[in-house]
Amino acid sequence: MSSARRPLRIYWAVVFLCLALLAWWGVYFFRQGDLLIERATAAGAPLDATQSRAIRDATRDTMVMFAVEGAAVALALVGGMVIVLKALKREAELGERQRAFLSGVTHELRSPIASAKLCVESLLLGRVPEEKGERYLNHAKEDLERLDRLVEEMLHSSRVANKSMEVHPEPLDLAAFVADLQQELKTEGSMNGALIEFDVPAEEVAVMADPVAVERILRNLLSNAVKYGGEPCRVDVTVRRDAGDGVLEVRDYGPGLGATDPRKLFQPFVRGSGDVVKKRPGVGLGLYVVAELARALGGRVDAEDGIEGGGTRMRVALPGREV
């Protein structure tokens, strides 16, 4: 028996002991009247009919009281057991997600470290073709910058996880804001082999939101779509007004999420279960950050998988404002 499971087993034993005691008391109370009458008879002083009835009535009253109170106690015990079991299941799921997270983080951090180390080691050992010295130094610098970005991203996720990130909502035109970022994001997308199409209305989509948070939301959604959008990768970004909200949608045409419930994607450390997802590096925090930022802004997120034409659609609705 492992030391972690021992207290749990003791808890189960105590619960079952309590239930067994309750059952035993029930039997005892049920038979209490008859026992008293039998003992009086055995002692040579048999009770008359009125005395016996009075004892049986008193026993019945005790039984009724016991049935009500005993049932309440038994219910509380069983309820406690269910709560404990559910908590254990949640803990096991979280543990599993954290293990996957650790494995992802390890890979993400080790790759640039390995690459930079190899460049520097080659230079130190004088194993670099003469014309490539500067190129190796640049490789190492880029790897370290990548590492820096990763650490920054993880710190950001950690701040969100600890709820210590503040948002400062202000009046914002979601359409104009996304339109301004459009060119930059298209260029970044094409560098990663993705074609990003924007469908942004000319008229204002007025929301209350923090521009820094909205940019982070959009970048995280796009990074996700480009990473898992298959090949060739096409991603559609749409901004529109819907029932008073400002809606931002990012849709890819990739193979989708596999067996993963789309609603769970916004929980920390959860990743899709499809082949493409498993093969891509990632730690399962990007969409969690999106969800937490949207929540902090008073908005909501949802994901839609298995849509017509394939792929996954992520949607963020931000609270609108009257213009």
Binding site: S111, A114, S115, L118, C119, S122, P129, H139, D143
Partner: peptide, 10 residues
């Protein structure tokens, strides 16, 4: 990993 591949190959 492009950098890694290039340095190993060299």
């Amino acid at each position: 990993e492009r950098h890694m591949a290039e340095v190993i190959a060299d």
